[in-house]
């Protein structure tokens, strides 16, 4: 199962990255490449996971590396629309407290609107 990545500018200082498909050992390098090209010192990176069907530890590591880079310059990482299966993997490794998590796009939009 492939991974498709869609990058769009959100509100000022935010880049949105929508993931569709499977974020696994095979496909995660594509996301890492995208992150290197778009995310240089951006205050907020928001991952829209609505269409993400699967995440493995490789995908987790890519997102955790993003959290680390973001926090190093005072930025943050937001996740929205996680399916129960994807959420479960984040929960097992106790990662959700370190990110901003939104259950819907509307919630995420409301948060990002504060930075307009």
């Amino acid at each position: 199962m492939p991974l498709s990545i869609q990058v769009s500018d959100g509100s000022p200082g935010t880049v949105r990255i929508a993931l569709d498909g499977s974020l696994d050992s095979e496909t995660t390098p594509e996301l890492e490449k995208t992150l290197r090209s778009v995310a240089e010192r951006m205050p907020r990176i928001a991952f829209d996971l609505q269409r993400l069907e699967f995440i493995s530890s490789a995908g987790l590591r890519a997102i955790f590396a993003t959290v680390k880079r973001q926090k190093a310059h005072g930025g943050e990482v937001a996740l929205s629309n996680m399916s129960p299966g994807v959420r479960k993997v984040f929960e097992i490794v106790k990662a959700l407290p370190d990110m901003r998590v939104f259950s819907s796009t509307e919630e995420l939009d409301a948060y990002l609107a504060k930075f307009q």
Partner: peptide, 16 residues
């Protein structure tokens, strides 16, 4: 028990 940004990357997958 450490925040994500302070963890080593090893062992995560095998823990899963």
């Amino acid at each position: 028990d450490r925040p994500v940004e302070a963890r080593q990357s090893g062992g995560l997958g095998l823990f899963l």
